[in-house]
Amino acid sequence: MKNSRKEGSWEAKKGLAQMLKGGVIMDVVTPEHALIAQEAGAVAVMALERVPSDIRIQGGVARMSDPDMIRGIQEQVNIPVMAKCRIGHFVEAQILEAMQIDYIDESEVLTPADEKYHVNKHDFSVPFVCGATNLGEALRRIGEGAAMIRTKGEAGTGNVVEAVRHARAVLGAIRKLRVTPVEELMTIAKEMGAPYDLVKYVHENGCLPVVNFAAGGLATPADAALMMQLGLDGVFVGSGIFKSGNPEKRARAIVEAVSRFDSPEVLAEVSRNLGEAMVGINISTIPDEERLANRGW
């Protein structure tokens, strides 16, 4: 009987992301953080050794987290646990799969391991989420097997402007493709560097074939609700929670804001008295070579 079960199928990989919609995925660096995140209502946690803002300050090569550290978090919570591998580092991905992580983020926040190629995500039974700054990049990642897409934003800055730019780029291109005549699709696929069948899917359905989240620089309940109103399915919050004055309260407020993102009265109430937000960085002061969103191809 057991062999009539099909594990690691596309429906199951994509389906878990569908169950995360309308939710908040939080970066955590310790089991204690993970518990705070779960109690605040996070739909999943991202286990990592350093949040992006610390990676930005401390520099050096950022790699996959220590398996022991990830294990500690897996043992602490019931909700799905995600972890990051470096772009193109398929062995880090194999290790994370062997640890039965629930989702792998092939992430520009870590130092890329390959300057040309991403992981072939079809090879894995564990699903992947990847960042994108525009529609072509999103469709290339889906073509490689990503079962979930997120904006790159500019992680660790507490500045939502890049996430907004990427969300508008992806969603705007989808809207445009919806009304593009069929005979133009092949040329658009060529110009975008995206697989033709996926370009055609977007033209026919008016959306990506997978769930699309916001990430990179979100710091407040209003930031999260902004991304939801723009049309994304849910949010990742990285440094924004545990680098703020009152993580418990802010985490809960962001969860509440995402669940009722279209009610300004609710947003006004949940935004009150959250303590200090993380200190932000203006994107124009970051040199091009230090911008994480430029990583990935």
């Binding site: 009539s4 079960r5 099909k6 594990e7 690691g8 199928s9 429906e11 199951a12 990989k13 389906g15 878990l16 019931n78 799905p80 799969e97 039965q100 992580i101 629930d102 989702y103 039974s125 564990v126 699903p127």
Partner: peptide, 15 residues
């Protein structure tokens, strides 16, 4: 009994 069948890699399709 939550997550009875295991973590995500154990998620499955079955007729």
């Amino acid at each position: 009994v939550r997550n009875y069948f295991g973590r995500q890699t154990c998620s499955f399709l079955k007729s």
